[in-house]
Structure formats: structure tokens, C-alpha cells
Amino acid sequence: MPTARLRRLARTLRGLRNERGLTREEVAARTSVNEATLYRLETAKGRPQRRTLLTLLDTYDVDSDKREAILALSTQAAEQGWLRPYHADLRDEYVGYISFEIEARSVRNYESLVVPGLLQTERYAQAAIRGVLPTATATKVDQRVLARMERQTSFTNDPPLELWAIVDEAALRRLVGGPDVMIEQLNHLAEMSTRPYVTLQVIPYTAGSHSGMHGSFVLMDFPDPDDPELVYIESMAGDLFLETDEDIRRYNQIFDHLRAVALSPGNSANLITAVAREIA
């Protein structure tokens, strides 16, 4: 299961090998570590056993101070104290996303049809998840709602998670859960938009076509400068984590365009309040 620290460890091992000018084939020839294992370790698809890690550190002539830091990082990469028993029934990709979000410094989220999960009320989340998963049992729906509500505790961290959310006006007008649930949700959005760690913008219908019409996405960055940004895309065809420089640059450009076409935070709050009054 991916974590930010496992990604950092993978990049560290890949960087050490490249610094020595070695290919995976050459490392495999010098050690008992085969190429397939090296590939998994260098792409965060697995965590090395201590013996394997020590072998690689010896091969790369890593000094004692750096060696201890890498060994500590490997231990930390295995720690997932945030896991709860009910997470076992969630998709691996979603649990992975939660692990990244917990470690993130900031999240930029564009949503075209629903309110961002970090800003959902419990009743809205219940109705939204039930609608998306019509065949799920009540227990499974409750587990997903609990996970979504738990994610919002990131706002209580010190420092709190910073969220910049952009939503299409359609997300405000879709009556998820009915009028009462939606009014409660819109009022919650208006209140959250006043928090110093939340920036909320709405793209009005009058903006016409825009670069977010292809679908929703999340951009995350992390406190450690060695952890590059990450893009997460959820779809019916499967969830994707993108981390190449090209993908990061492309989605940053898309988000910048969406910020430009969206209403200002103040006017967005006014629109949210106006829609709530219309529904009422």
C-alpha cells in the first residue's frame, strides 16, 4: 500500500543507484537482489526487507549517517497507524489516497458533480455514496462515510491541511439527499469557506466550457521537499496516481485555468448562499 514515505524511500534507492552509474541489471549481478525486486523497490510497489536494504546500501557505498536515516525511513514506511479495521473493506487505491492525504501539506481539488469529500456533511456523504454504490450494503456505505468523515480531521492538525477546492455550479444544484440535506450542505460550505485554511471557488454556468469538463482530480503536495506532488484521479475505470513531471505540470496548468475562470472566493460564497435560499 503506497505512502509518501514509501515513495521517498523508493526515490532514494533509485537516486543512489543512479549516482553510482549502475543499471538494475548490474546491481542484480553484484548482489542477490534480482531486477524484478529492484524495480518494485524503486517504484514504491514494495518495501525492502532489512537484509535486502543493507545489501543495497553496501553496494552503493552509503556512509553511516545516511545509512541510519534510510533505515529509519524504511521503518517509518511500514507504519500505518492511521489504519482502522473498517479500512479493510475499502479499495486499496482509496486507502492509499487516504495515506497520502494524511501526510499532505495541501490539497487542490476540482469537482464537477459533487461537493469535495473534505467538505461534505455526514448526511450528504451518506446520500452521495449510496447513490454512487446502489448495490452496496448499509454496512459498507456506513464504513465509507466514516472514512470520509475521518479524513476531515486533517483540518485539526497543527498546522492544518490547506485545501483549495474548485467546484462546478452543478455540484451545488444537484439535490443529493433531497432539499434538507442539500441546504445543510450548502450552509456548511459557506461556513467552511470562511476558514483560513480553506479556499473555495465556484465555476458558474455562465463561464461556459472550461478545462475541467473532462473530470475531477486532486493535486497534493507534501511538507518534505523530497516528496514531489501527486495527482489522483478517481473514475469508474479505476483510480490513478500520476507523478511524472509532465503530468504534474499539466494538472497544475489545468488548475490554474480553473482558478481563473471561477468566481472569486467572496462571490463564490454569495452564489452558494443564493442557491441555498433558492432551494429553501
Results as ranks from 00 to 15, higher is better:
residue 168 D to L: 04
residue 173 R to L: 10
residue 98 I to C: 11
residue 83 L to S: 03
residue 128 A to D: 05
residue 260 A to S: 14
residue 52 T to P: 01
residue 258 L to G: 01
residue 244 T to M: 08
residue 88 A to P: 04
residue 176 V to Y: 14
residue 220 M to Y: 11
residue 188 H to C: 07
residue 223 P to S: 00
residue 34 N to K: 14
residue 215 G to I: 07
residue 197 Y to C: 12
residue 261 V to N: 03
residue 115 V to L: 06
residue 108 R to E: 13
residue 41 L to V: 02
residue 177 G to K: 03
residue 52 T to Y: 02
residue 119 L to N: 02
residue 130 R to W: 09
residue 266 G to A: 08
residue 60 Y to K: 01
residue 197 Y to Q: 15
residue 108 R to C: 04
residue 235 S to K: 09
residue 210 H to W: 05
residue 31 T to F: 03
residue 45 K to F: 10
residue 151 R to E: 12
residue 232 Y to L: 09
residue 175 L to W: 12
residue 6 L to E: 10
residue 38 L to G: 06
residue 197 Y to N: 15
residue 67 R to G: 00
residue 61 D to F: 14
residue 190 A to H: 12
residue 189 L to E: 07
residue 274 A to W: 08
residue 101 E to I: 01
residue 4 A to M: 14
residue 259 R to C: 14
residue 206 T to I: 12
residue 214 H to T: 12
residue 170 A to P: 05
residue 150 E to H: 10
residue 228 P to T: 10
residue 254 I to R: 14
residue 258 L to A: 04
residue 21 G to W: 05
residue 78 A to I: 07
residue 269 A to D: 01
residue 64 S to I: 14
residue 4 A to W: 11
residue 12 T to A: 11
residue 63 D to S: 10
residue 91 R to L: 15
residue 101 E to V: 06
residue 214 H to G: 13
residue 167 V to I: 12
residue 6 L to K: 13
residue 218 V to C: 06
residue 263 L to M: 11
residue 90 L to D: 00
residue 43 T to K: 05
residue 210 H to R: 05
residue 250 R to W: 11
residue 254 I to C: 07
residue 215 G to D: 08
residue 113 L to K: 07
residue 226 D to V: 01
residue 1 M to R: 08
residue 106 S to G: 11
residue 5 R to H: 11
residue 21 G to Q: 08
residue 247 D to Q: 08
residue 225 P to V: 15
residue 95 V to R: 14
residue 31 T to Y: 06
residue 279 I to S: 07
residue 147 A to R: 04
residue 278 E to A: 08
residue 37 T to K: 10
residue 41 L to Q: 06
residue 13 L to T: 00
residue 251 Y to A: 01
residue 205 Y to M: 13
residue 134 P to L: 13
residue 7 R to T: 09
residue 143 Q to W: 10
residue 169 E to A: 10
residue 266 G to I: 07
residue 280 A to P: 03
residue 208 G to V: 03
residue 223 P to L: 05
residue 1 M to E: 08
residue 71 L to V: 11
residue 73 L to T: 03
residue 193 S to K: 03
residue 84 R to A: 15
residue 89 D to Y: 01
residue 262 A to N: 01
residue 236 M to Y: 09
residue 266 G to H: 04
residue 64 S to L: 13
